[in-house]
Structures are given as structure tokens and as C-alpha cells.
């Protein structure tokens, strides 16, 4: 059952989550987001994981009318078929770059090598972008690696850290606090505010991790 909640007077959060992550729902989220962004009365949208935050200007737009519009649009939305690109991410696994590899291996009841193989075997999809500039929430993580986030976040996780947490995979676009577990390090530049397209990854992109040579 999809719920629409207030996010202040100028925002609405459409929450379509129903238990486990649903790929079809996610494609409908992207489609709804794109359709909304074509409208002049929408300031911006933030697609989350099986949810969508919609922002508008309550000075000009009636929130109740916007809620009705959003519900109608969502009901009619069909799954987005956006062209997907494949991005290959080279990773230096373990050692000083992957301080949680041993912990994750114990959690998954695998050897460190099997843990790396399981991480590389995934075909991940960029479900959402956010938290920090250029951070991607990747779905498609091997369920054996779905270790919960740390109880208290590390105050400093380095840019390029290849991380997993809460059933998702990700990579740190900048040095920042994080509660995710660190498996390795990539030297890809994930976000640069001065590039024509600042973020390296787009919604729907497929990501594959390989061992850095």
C-alpha cells in the first residue's frame, strides 16, 4: 500500500516500500520522478529506495492538489525502461583499504576471498543518489553480505572507500562520516562539481566491481 506523507508544507514523500526492495517499484519511482520534473510547478524530486520526495513551492501551489496529482501519477506510472550503461569499478580489496573485510567475512560465514568473489559477482543497479554529493545506493548485493550498518558511524571514511551497509553497496564520493562497512578502495572520481555532468553514475546504471590490477 503506497502512502503519501507530508514533508513540511512544500514537500510530499511517496513511500511505496512493501517489505523487501522491489525493482519494479523502483522503475515506477524513476518514471514518476521524470514525469514530475517536466512540470513547472515542481522544484525538484529526490528518488529514494522505493520512495520519492517531491518538492514544490507552497506559496504558489496548493499542497492538497499536489498530493492528488502525485497519487494519480503514481497509480498510472509504468515501469521506466531507461537505457542502462555499465560502469566497471576497479577495487583494491582488503588490507589497509578494506578494514572491515574480515568482519564481513565472519558475518557471512565465508573466507575473505569468497567475500570478495561474492561482492564482485553482483550486477548492481543505481537505485538512488543522495546523502552526499554523488553517493549511489546500489541494489543487487548478495544477501549473504547484507550486514547491518555499524551501531555508531565512523567519523571519517576516506573518499573512494567501497562500502556495504543495510543490504546496499556503495562508494564514498568524498571523505565523510559513515556507518557502512569498508571492503576496499577505488580511485574512480565519483563526483566533481566542475564537470559538465558532476556525478559519474546515473539512476539505473549497472555497476560491476572488478579487482584493480
Amino acid at each position: 500500500m503506497t502512502r503519501i506523507h507530508m514533508a513540511g508544507a512544500s514537500g510530499l514523500l511517496l513511500d511505496a516500500a512493501d517489505g523487501a526492495f522491489n525493482d519494479m517499484t523502483q522503475r515506477r519511482i524513476w518514471a514518476t520522478s521524470r514525469e514530475l520534473n517536466a512540470r513547472a510547478d515542481i522544484v525538484q524530486t529526490i528518488p529514494g529506495v522505493n520512495n520519492l520526495l517531491v518538492m514544490f513551492d507552497a506559496v504558489k501551489t496548493d499542497p492538497a492538489a499536489m498530493e492528488t496529482l502525485l497519487r494519480d501519477m503514481w497509480t498510472q506510472a509504468s515501469a521506466d525502461e531507461i537505457p542502462t550503461r555499465e560502469i566497471v569499478v576497479p577495487v583494491a580489496y582488503g588490507g589497509i583499504f578494506g578494514e572491515d573485510l574480515a568482519l564481513v567475512a565472519r558475518f557471512a560465514n565465508l573466507t575473505e576471498e569468497e567475500t570478495i568473489e561474492a561482492h564482485m559477482a553482483g550486477r548492481y543497479s543505481v537505485a538512488a543518489i543522495g546523502a552526499m554529493a554523488g553517493f549511489v545506493y546500489l541494489t543487487g548485493l548478495d544477501p549473504r553480505l547484507a550486514i547491518p550498518r555499524r551501531d555508531s558511524p565512523r567519523l571519517r571514511v576516506e573518499e573512494g572507500a567501497v562500502v556495504i551497509g543495510g543490504g546496499h553497496a556503495g562508494m564514498m564520493p568524498c571523505t565523510s562520516p559513515s556507518g557502512w562497512h569498508i571492503l576496499g578502495r577505488t580511485n574512480l572520481c565519483l563526483f566533481d562539481a566542475f564537470r559538465p555532468e558532476p556525478g559519474l553514475l546515473r539512476l539505473g546504471d549497472t555497476v560491476r566491481f572488478v579487482r584493480a590490477s
Partner: peptide
């Protein structure tokens, strides 16, 4: 156990 979602200033 919430999925990650967009948040606004004021939340």
C-alpha cells in the same frame, strides 16, 4: 527499518 529516502531542511 526504513529504506533511505530524501529529506529536507527542517526534518
Amino acid at each position: 527499518n526504513l529504506f533511505s529516502h530524501g529529506i529536507l531542511p527542517g526534518t
